[in-house]
């Protein structure tokens, strides 16, 4: 564990806490893409298949459980909670995310560390996570002004993988044979997808204005 990875995990946890706060405090999920939340639930379920078989550390296991439970709870809340589900922007959240699942799985069948079920599901989860934010970014562009908590949620979610890139650079230079090209390249693509969001987020912060993504 290095400081970059810890910062990344804490930022990721922060994004989830901000989203839970938004939904719980405002009893609303307006501006949040259910499809992105569903993709993240698939990402964690596919990536942490080893949850019950391998044990690295208490931290590792606890964080995996937190990510899986929180992502499923958010999906459940947006689908079935009486008050929350009414605030879901169903007509704006129309990204066909099934293609993202299919595409990521096909890519994982081609590029993986080893041709085993676990490694293919792991690569699938890495590729899917890289594109999972797309429905959310599209929804933000369509839903005009973005409320603060939603903006902070997306910001922390994008920043966490940026910290992981620093972690991979650090591990590349400090560990003998550290080659995690699948995660590194996918992480670069993932962070790059947030580039324009980060730009408009920075502008809104600098001008102290409401965050607004151009349609």
């Amino acid at each position: 564990m290095n400081i970059f990875r810890l910062a990344g995990d804490m930022t990721h946890l922060m994004s989830i806490l901000v989203l839970l706060l938004k939904i719980y405090a405002t009893k609303s999920c307006s501006g949040i893409s259910l499809k992105t939340q569903e993709l993240y639930a698939v990402v964690f379920l596919a990536r942490y298949l080893d949850l019950l078989t391998d044990f690295f550390s208490l931290y590792n296991t606890v964080m995996k459980v937190v990510f899986i439970v929180s992502s499923l709870a958010i999906v459940w809340c947006m689908r079935y909670h009486r008050a929350v589900r009414r605030t879901y922007d169903r007509e704006l959240d129309t990204f066909r995310h099934y293609f993202l699942i299919l595409g990521s799985f096909v890519l994982a069948l081609i590029f993986h560390e080893k041709f085993t079920v676990r490694e293919i599901f792991w690569a699938f989860s890495i590729y899917l996570e890289a594109v999972a934010i797309l429905p959310q970014l599209v929804l933000l562009q369509r839903s005009g002004n973005v409320d603060n908590l939603t903006g902070q949620y997306v910001f922390f979610l994008g920043a966490y993988r940026g910290f992981y890139i620093l972690n991979w650079i650090y591990r590349y230079f400090t560990e003998a044979h550290f080659g995690r090209w699948i995660a590194s390249i996918s992480g670069l693509v993932q962070t790059a997808l947030y580039a324009d969001f980060f730009y408009y987020y920075f502008l809104s912060w600098k001008n102290n204005a409401k965050l607004k993504l151009p349609a």
């Binding site: 990721h12 560390e113 490694e119």
Partner: peptide, 10 residues
Amino acid sequence: GTTLLYHDEL
């Protein structure tokens, strides 16, 4: 030898 294919990262 090849790195043990474990995923210690989240």
